[in-house]
Design a protein around this nucleic acid. Sequence first.
DNA 1: CGTCTGTTTGAGCGCGTTCAATAATCGTGG
DNA 2: CCACGATTATTGAACGCGCTCAAACAGACG
Lengths: 241, 241
Amino acid sequence: MRTNDTVRAIGHCGQCEQCEHCSARSQSICSVIDQRDLHQLALHSQKIEIPSGRCFIEEGETARDFFIVTDGHAKLFNLLPDGRRQITGFADCGQFLGLASIENYAFSAEALTSLRVCRFSHIGMSLLKTQFPALERRLLEEASSELVRAQARMLLLGRKTARERLASFLLERQEVAPRSDVLILSMTRTDIADYLGLTIETVSRTLNAFRRDKLIEIDHITSIKLLNLTEIRLLADGEGF
Amino acid sequence: MRTNDTVRAIGHCGQCEQCEHCSARSQSICSVIDQRDLHQLALHSQKIEIPSGRCFIEEGETARDFFIVTDGHAKLFNLLPDGRRQITGFADCGQFLGLASIENYAFSAEALTSLRVCRFSHIGMSLLKTQFPALERRLLEEASSELVRAQARMLLLGRKTARERLASFLLERQEVAPRSDVLILSMTRTDIADYLGLTIETVSRTLNAFRRDKLIEIDHITSIKLLNLTEIRLLADGEGF
DNA sequence: CGTCTGTTTGAGCGCGTTCAATAATCGTGG
DNA sequence: CCACGATTATTGAACGCGCTCAAACAGACG
């Protein structure tokens, strides 16, 4: 069973084997690691269940482990002493956690929903890397695309208007959504605000402005339907109104 | 000569062998690559001089090369269609350029001063990586610390005030400065503004407010002396006034 | 000396914030 | 099932930080 779990953690996204997104991710790592060697990976990993709301990585602590999300959602964030918070990313199924750390974790992580992760010790990870050079390559790839995303977020935080930020956010959520037109948000308005560098009031006002402009439909607080994708894309790219 | 240049590019920072910062960087990569193999690296690299103001990486172009800065300074940035710009980082001596790209470059890069870089083709880099697994490990380390920096910048752009941003900027520049108390800035006020998500006017006003508060001394537009480091640190961490 | 570019300074404005009140949503127990 | 309290979201009114627009100033270079 442990072997199976790890295969899922590294190769497949446990919960959703039908999921296009996750199986696409899994492809790249499954293809580089020989199936016969997979049981070896299992020896170095451990499956963990984390309840919603639990903080499982704390900024500043020595970075001993490395995680891969296999089910559920988490938020990663940084804090200022007075409580101001910046969410640097949301981790969805298949995502790696712990790349942004050297000796200590450079961020905190908290489960948004009940969460399943596969945990690897850094020591075990090092052993794995020497055994499977392809793993290191895979991690570098992941770090690269993480960096690309980080730059896009800096552009957003530094230069985009509130409307543009929310439009970008909706499109980003759409990319990881199972159904393309309806988003199920697992985060609160406060989380969205802290992710986009805004206040909850502005998030709320802007979303309702979108609704009035017939760009979206808000069926429920957590369920948003994208009506005018073309216009949302224009907005997100800074060419909207 | 080519061999020597590459040794410098990967191992040492050409111009400044006395420089504490650069030799510290070089240590980590020199130690993992056998001296006898260094001439092999040379076959895959090429030294390039870039005049000040020249744009040598353009966002969206196919990412064929990988760079290491050996002398001078560069700025990396992203643009919105209407010209709004976010500088995502400044590249100083010893820094890697090109990690944040998958198939295409995700950013543009322009020389701030006359610049020297060592260029590696991605193809050559792949060959090198299989030959020197330690190189891949080194790149992953570099990507990790880049990610850590990116998160700090998101916190800055999303949640810090103008004063806090400028204080953080000054400290960041101090870290790469040869003399610890006097900064020589190679970028214009416009660049600083685009780096911190502010306008040139706010940058100018805030710096002069710092001068009035006796936190800094502005000898020349490009030369800033840090007077009250304690207070600047407090400000940067969000605990100042 | 004038020209060009980059910086500083001033005055007024506006986007997003802050503060405050209301409304919706969820969980819980009777 | 509804009543109740706690939490989260929405809406309104007023403020203020940083922006915009505009003018004056400084430095570099021919």
